[in-house]
């Protein structure tokens, strides 16, 4: 009986060239430097990718789906962490890819950028973030980000 179930399973799925991927992915490694802030200020930590730089309305872009963010919180108190962002609307140019930290209880206000793609720390206001043109479905695009909690980059938030 078990074998019959397995046989039925085996008849399903598999690779199919007629169902080509419609999405692309951004992947990369976030490397952390410097002393981590207290745990109670690390309410959330995610990679967020914006189409505009500087973002006009950070919260609005996230809520409207124009900004993409990782589905899970990045691991804390580690040297590095890998991430993936799935992109369904192609082509798209992402001009501002950051690691964002929620440091306080207010989900809409208590955020700060702690790392920017293309601006390794210490980054000043002159630094221009790298853009990523995501065009080809089925392809992975790479964006590594460095974070130094002791040298935070310029903030886009009010």
């Amino acid at each position: 009986m078990l074998l019959l179930v397995l046989l039925l399973l085996a008849g399903c799925g598999g690779l199919d060239p007629t169902v080509l991927p419609t999405e692309a992915y951004i992947t990369g490694t976030v490397r952390f430097r410097g002393a981590w802030p207290p745990e109670d200020s690390l309410r959330d930590l995610r990679v967020v990718a914006f189409q505009n730089y500087p973002p006009q309305d950070v919260v609005g872009e996230v809520l409207s789906g124009k900004a993409l963010f990782t589905q899970e919180r990045l691991p804390l108190f580690v040297d590095s962490a890998s991430y993936q962002l799935r992109i369904e609307q192609l082509p798209v140019t992402l001009r501002y890819i950051v690691v964002a930290q929620q440091y306080g209880p207010d989900l809409f206000r208590h955020w700060r950028v702690v790392g920017i793609y293309g601006c390794p720390p210490p980054a000043d206001t002159a630094c221009q973030p790298d853009s990523l043109q995501v065009q080809e479905a089925g392809r992975w695009y790479r964006a590594d980000i460095e974070v130094d909690f002791e040298h935070l980059p310029p903030q886009p938030f009010p």
Partner: peptide, 22 residues
């Protein structure tokens, strides 16, 4: 290795599924 895809070496490098072989 995402680089197979990110660097454009292998198209659809990420296409993979569970293996069921009878």
């Amino acid at each position: 290795d995402e680089e197979f895809s990110t660097l454009g070496f292998i198209r659809h490098a990420d296409q993979r599924v569970p293996i069921h072989v009878v």
